[in-house]
Design a protein around this nucleic acid. Sequence first.
DNA 1: CCACATGATTTAGGAATGAC
DNA 2: GTCATTCCTAAATCATGTGG
Length: 302
Amino acid sequence: MRISLRQLEIFVAIAKRGSTTAAGEDIALSQSAISASLAELERALNQQLFDRVGKRLLLNDHGRAMLSQAMSLVNGAESLEQTFLDEKAPSMLVIGASLTIGNYLLPRLLRHFWQQQGYTLGDSVPPLQVLIANTADIINKVANFEVDIGLVEGPCHRNDIAVTQWLEDELLLVAAPTHPIVLEYGPNLVPAKRLEKANWLLRESGSGTREALERALLPHVTQLKSSLEFNDHEAIKQSAIEGLGIACLSKLVVEDALGVGKLVKLNTQFGVLSRQFSILTHRQKQLTSGMQRFISHATANI
DNA sequence: CCACATGATTTAGGAATGAC
DNA sequence: GTCATTCCTAAATCATGTGG
């Protein structure tokens, strides 16, 4: 074999950070050592992996083709190392979750998971890191091996990621009881034309909730007028409660506010808006026993 | 255009290691 | 102990971007 894992590790670091200097900071090597290692790897492969454009290193076709496999090999080596280095302490599971799931579903899921495994809650649970971001970001983190498992609320069409269909989530259109649409229509069906005139409180693009809403409504409603856009649905929910507009949020997010009458559900001709939650793993990632336990618990217990 | 900053590459050489 | 090899650093050099 002419290439080493160390060279692949350095190659991945350069690809991720975009420069030899930054890669050197990441893996505690001098910039020069990074440069030499990359040169040696390219020499061994007889191919350039980056285009040199000015002072910049830009991943080229060969580099892109190699990156995913290199990340997989480096990740596999790291988990193998972890197994032997730290046999007694379980390795840290990293879960990436989109906002609705991370805030409203994951805490309950983790409680069941740990209780079922016999841990004393709040006292002795195994190490676990949760990263919360929107669906598009979580997909990228799974693809880059930054998280072990992704729990997302939007679709994922990447070939390198395995998608397990998980739960059906219901999306509700809600507004404050004092909102003109509620006063006008109450429990009756709100026509599409009226929805076009209303001001919407929307999530940013890249969010699963936003994508599901657009997919469901845009065939019937020409545009969603929005003056307020948020990257967090708690802010949307509170804004809706304050009467700032109509929101489309997961039932998980608004059921408490609906229960106490702070928000009212709007009925439309579109029927139930639903979307699929999914569990994502990288196809080339080695599934550890911890990952397998978590996934089978998640798929069996909700 | 020029001076400066930044970043990649090259070069010289040190430390660790293994074969003999 | 000596030599070769590998992996690394520090410093010098080269190339390019940027601001005045």
